[in-house]
Amino acid sequence: MFEARLTSGKILKQLIEALKDLVQEANIDCSDDEISIQAMDNSHVSLVAVSLRSGGFDHFRCDRPLSLGFNATNMGKILKCAGNEDAITLKAEDDGDSLSMVFEGPNQDRIADFGEFARGARGSDSPPGSRREKCWKIDFNFATMRGVGVLVVIFDRKIYELKLMDIDSEQLGIPDTDYKVTIQMPSGEFQRIIRDMQVLGDTLSISCTKEGVKFGVQGDLGTGNVLIRQNAHAEKDEDRVMIEMEEPVELTFALRYLNFFTKATNLGPTVILNMSPDVPIVVEYPIGETGHIKYYLAPKIDE
């Protein structure tokens, strides 16, 4: 039995949006300390790796390791039915062939409160904003809906079943790597650079020197260059640009893939780029304290 409830279901919606253009099918691997996804695109040029730690869920139970094979487009379609404020619970039996997804609206907690306090709350002196006052408001809503609690629960809880599939996933063994360059910058700024550079060409060079990080593109239309300098003392954490460099690195990449990666921008204010000479770049979006989505992209190399 696997069961996990994420209060901020939006994270799951955004995660699937962030990978569904890159991979069609993948496994959600569930263990007692995390759920993870690792999948390559069809051409094996890029890889996406997701990790959500069990501690980031408000309920998590996984009796034994499970691999749940899913079609990303189909899961995306179902997750579109969840509101941005909904909590999402995932459930799967050990030998089942479907994944149950339960979406609960943000009023769900208050409905639970109603059940708990209903009798005592009527007519009592409750300070403004207290749970008992909320009960009165919910009571009013019940009356206008001409219903009872059960009706509201039906309206506020949606249950979907996604068919699962057997997927032979090719797992890449990615060694722990000390990268020569680590760049942390605002994810929105990275997204804009990638979007703008795509107007000019297909290949982006990323060059990190003492001067800063230079993003450059050359195309038939002309050339574009953007220089980002370290700005470790910006007022807001999310505006900071931090560059750690052991040695200068310059690599080139296909913009098409980098553009796919920026679909994860909504997951957090910060993106981290890790680079070393002649190895894949890692583009990481931390997801609060819950986990991360990382993309690996093989470089283009002059032969």
Partner: peptide, 14 residues
């Protein structure tokens, strides 16, 4: 133009 490599050049399949 530089050549696009795949990840299989850098990492082993498990």
């Amino acid at each position: 133009d530089p050549r696009q490599f795949t990840l299989l050049k850098f990492y082993e399949l498990n």
